[in-house]
Amino acid sequence: MDMQLQGTTAFVSGSTSGIGYAVARALAGEGARVTLNGRDEGRVAAAVERLRAERPDSDVSGIAADFADPDAVAGLIEQLGDVDVLVNNVGLFGLAAFGAVDDAEWQRYVEVNVMSGVRMSRALLPGMLERGRGRVVFISSESGVSVPADMVHYGVTKAAMIALSNGLAKLTRGTAVTVNTVLGGPTYSDGVAATIGQIAAAQGVEATSVRDAVIGQNATTLLERFIEPDEIAALVVYLASPLASATNGAALRADGGVLTTTL
């Protein structure tokens, strides 16, 4: 299916690996000119070269910036120019007891998980509205709806992303610009795979057995396996396309059925 993204420009934050990279690769495959992002210049350059190798006809570039640093984000925005598709993907993730997360760590999660989307949307949404077209997609999580007790700080920031996206959508009334959120579920990203590999090595077992045991602890998953990053990316590409013109202000699930509510 032609997603009608040929010649559009896209920026994906936090896209040197995992879901972000999968989204960037999928957009590039549909003919979008894609800018990758990560904190480290070396990793950004490597991701750009990898994507060019996987999509030889693609137009790919990269900008390094740490979203925990407002000045770095301002510099990134200065380099970007007009963007048709903004994917607010960058985010911190981690398990921690509520009492063990101090104010500084809370602030770091807010800066990266929430203020990244605030700053990028504040910079790029007005141009979309002026040009009369554009897409903003937030990558949130089912943890923003059902906040886990062992990562309250993460879940709260993911809930804030959902609220931010919904509020921004109301600014697009009567235009061809949309703002939506994807609620991802347990995804076998590069980081998750590395962690499971370390656990498996320490236990002297196969990584697949650890992976299956971890997902088996999730009592509500209907998929009964980890989601692949490409499966999240497929929904993002649809929302980024003109085909999703009637979807705005929505939080769409790619959670494998983890959430048990109907709405």
Score class of each variant (00 low, 15 high):
108 R>Y: 07
180 N>T: 10
4 Q>P: 00
88 N>C: 12
197 G>Q: 11
53 A>W: 06
139 I>C: 09
31 G>F: 04
30 E>N: 04
57 D>K: 13
197 G>W: 02
56 P>K: 01
113 N>Y: 06
249 G>E: 08
224 E>R: 15
187 T>P: 04
259 L>I: 11
116 S>Y: 09
139 I>F: 11
104 A>P: 09
219 A>Q: 14
171 L>S: 14
129 L>Q: 10
53 A>C: 09
19 I>H: 02
202 A>Y: 04
220 T>A: 00
79 Q>H: 13
7 G>N: 00
172 T>I: 11
237 V>Y: 06
59 D>N: 13
10 A>M: 04
205 V>Q: 07
156 V>W: 04
77 I>E: 08
262 T>P: 07
142 E>F: 10
138 F>D: 01
78 E>Y: 10
201 A>I: 07
145 V>S: 08
213 A>T: 12
84 D>H: 00
109 Y>G: 05
24 A>M: 08
2 D>W: 08
106 W>R: 03
63 I>F: 12
31 G>C: 01
232 I>G: 06
5 L>T: 01
133 R>L: 11
5 L>W: 05
171 L>V: 14
232 I>W: 01
77 I>P: 07
203 Q>P: 03
3 M>F: 15
70 P>S: 09
192 V>T: 12
200 A>L: 12
12 V>L: 00
256 G>K: 02
182 V>K: 03
185 G>C: 08
57 D>Q: 15
102 D>S: 00
164 L>I: 09
167 G>L: 12
213 A>Y: 05
88 N>G: 05
82 D>F: 13
153 H>P: 06
16 T>H: 00
128 M>P: 00
163 A>R: 12
67 F>T: 11
166 N>A: 15
105 E>Y: 06
197 G>A: 09
99 G>I: 12
74 A>Y: 03
71 D>F: 10
211 R>K: 15
231 E>C: 05
116 S>A: 14
18 G>I: 05
258 V>A: 13
227 I>C: 09
43 R>E: 11
22 A>K: 02
115 M>F: 15
250 A>K: 10
91 G>Q: 01
158 K>E: 07
4 Q>F: 12
28 A>P: 10
245 S>Q: 13
258 V>K: 01
210 V>C: 04
157 T>W: 00
39 R>K: 07
128 M>K: 01
146 S>R: 14
202 A>K: 08
44 V>H: 00
133 R>I: 07
260 T>L: 08
30 E>S: 06
